[in-house]
């Protein structure tokens, strides 16, 4: 039991040990004696006055004593009757209390029953949820396995993509090199053509003078055949590369 409750119980008993129990005996006795004394005094006065009333002739001592005892018995009977009445009231109260507690027990039984029903329903729901959880966890495990496979495939695809990209880059690099070479050759060719045109122009300019003299005819023809040869050489080279 909880200590604070025991403490209250103990303290109440201790309080009564100090305040109530040492005094209750003597106080109750005093009260009873006082009550008895008061009653007897009243009775005695009454009996004495009545005994004197009866024609001035005093009744005997025994008769007075008997009357006193009779009064006292009547008083005791009254008190007993009061006690019986009190006890009957207490009995009724106890019966009512018993009924009250029975109704409380019945109420709590009903409450317990409804709680038990609720508990059963909750247990059923719980087991349903547990089953669902189990299914879902199985599904989750399967999905995880699937996801693992997909991830592996993804990794493979990524690797392949990387490789392809590398290859494509390599190829592009080579293509660029080829283009660069072609451009360089083209450039060289254009430079050379330019030089040749320049030579041709110079040659023609010089040829104009021999026509006038007619002694450098053969030299001019020779120059034209050289240009044609170069042109042919370049075309052959380019075609072979392509």
């Amino acid at each position: 039991m909880r200590s604070w409750k025991n403490h209250v119980r103990g303290e109440l008993q201790q309080r009564d040990q100090t305040e109530k129990l040492p005094f209750i005996g003597v106080f109750t006795s005093l009260s009873q004696m006082e009550e008895r004394f008061e009653f007897r005094k009243t009775c005695l006065d009454d009996v004495q006055s009545k005994s004197l009333d009866r024609g001035g002739r005093e009744v005997g001592k025994d008769t007075r004593l008997l009357q006193l005892q009779l009064r006292e018995s009547e008083h005791l009977a009254e008190k007993l009757s009061q006690t019986v009445s009190d006890l009957t009231t207490v009995l009724y109260l106890k019966e009512a209390e018993l009924q009250y507690w029975q109704s409380r027990v019945s109420h709590f039984r009903q409450e317990a029953l409804s709680l038990a029903k609720g508990s059963n329903a909750m247990k059923a729901t719980l087991s349903e949820f547990e089953y669902t959880v189990e299914c879902q966890s199985k599904e989750l495990a399967a999905l995880r396995t699937e996801q693992k496979g997909i991830n592996q495939a993804l990794e493979q695809a990524c690797r392949e993509k990387e490789e392809l990209l590398q290859r494509w880059m390599e190829e592009k690099r080579e293509e660029a090199d080829r283009l660069n070479k072609y451009n360089a050759a083209q450039e060289r060719w254009q430079r050379f053509a330019k030089q040749l045109k320049k030579h041709l122009h110079n040659a023609r300019t010089k040829e104009f003078v021999p026509i006038v003299t007619s002694s450098w005819c053969g030299e001019a023809e020779m120059s034209t055949s050289v240009i044609q040869r170069i042109n042919n050489t370049y075309r052959d080279t380019t075609m072979s590369k392509l």
């Binding site: 409750k5 309080r15 109530k20 209750i24 106080f27």
Partner: peptide, 17 residues
């Protein structure tokens, strides 16, 4: 609802001389 009837009784029947 109050139980611990002994406590209730001790409280009710407390006396001071």
């Amino acid at each position: 609802m109050a139980d611990d009837k002994d406590v209730l009784r001790d409280v009710w029947f407390g006396r001071i001389p």
